[in-house]
Amino acid sequence: MILTISKSFRYEREIKKSRFVANAFHAASTARAMEFVERIKDPQASHNCWAYRIGGEYKFSDDGEPAGTAGRPILGAIEKQGLDRVVVVVTRYFGGIKLGAGGLARAYLGTAAECLRSADKQKILDYLTVKFEADFDATGSVHAAVEKQGARMVGERYTESGINAEIEVEENSAESLRTALLEATRGKGVFTIRSRSRNQAEGEKK
């Protein structure tokens, strides 16, 4: 199960007089992630370090901190919690005491991790769009099966041979839907997978 955060979240703490402020945001694309980074950056801060992971894409920045002490640990916090479509910016206001490379890495990792742990989560679900073809007299049975399986009819047209339905269903429920539709049409329907997409399950928090 893959999770994302359901809404932006802010977390702040002080470490040896330096103030670390983490802001986490859900981003469906790299463009949205970078928009958030630019919006959150504080030009008055010592450093604005960030990282994002969106599907197979990831990127991070140390923003002037020693290499490997900020951006990579922030990305590690995202990955360790199994999150996707997430961007985190950790802003540091230097307090006059140097933390050293190890101390910096722990500070950025810990601040990002606590921010993400405290944020509301929701699942990211994989969906399939399937096509189902059946005779006209099976139309009512097809609709009933789709509703019972918790799937969604997203398109419907009629041809000379019968009904041609386009249905969206959660991937792990696709086989159950296929079985229900074939039973409803006494094995006379044709079930075809058309496409796959990844969407959020609205309101499902953890």
Rank of each mutant, 00 (worst) to 15 (best):
I2T: 13
Y11T: 02
I54K: 04
A145L: 01
S161H: 12
K7D: 08
S195C: 00
A180H: 03
Y108C: 09
N199L: 08
D135M: 14
D63Q: 06
A45M: 01
K16W: 01
Q149V: 07
F191K: 00
G150R: 12
K59R: 15
A28R: 13
F132C: 07
R106K: 14
V146G: 02
G68N: 13
E171R: 15
A151Y: 05
M153L: 15
A107C: 07
I193P: 00
V86F: 04
F136V: 10
V142G: 04
P73R: 14
A119T: 02
V190Y: 00
E38G: 11
L3W: 13
H47E: 03
Y158R: 10
A112W: 11
E168F: 08
V169D: 03
S46E: 04
E12W: 06
V87Q: 02
A67Y: 08
S118G: 13
N199G: 03
D120Y: 11
L128Y: 11
N164E: 14
D84C: 04
G187P: 04
R72Y: 13
H143D: 13
I124Y: 06
E147R: 14
K59V: 09
T185A: 04
G55F: 02
A33R: 04
T139S: 15
M153G: 06
V130L: 06
T4A: 12
K17F: 08
L116I: 12
H47I: 03
E65T: 11
A105V: 07
A165M: 11
E202M: 01
V89G: 02
I5L: 07
R72T: 15
K7C: 07
V37A: 00
A112Y: 10
A107D: 08
T111S: 09
Y127R: 09
T111N: 08
M153C: 12
S195I: 00
A138I: 10
S173N: 15
V21P: 08
R92I: 03
R117M: 12
G95Q: 03
S18R: 04
I2V: 15
Y11V: 01
E175M: 12
A151L: 06
V154W: 06
V154G: 06
A22P: 00
C115E: 07
S176W: 00
S176G: 14
E38N: 14
R117L: 14
R19H: 05
R186I: 03
D42K: 07
T30V: 14
F191S: 01
I40F: 02
P66C: 13
T192G: 00
S173K: 15
C49R: 02
P66G: 12
G71T: 09
E204H: 09
V154I: 15
D42P: 02
N48P: 10
T30C: 10
V130M: 04
R178C: 13
G68R: 12
S195Q: 00
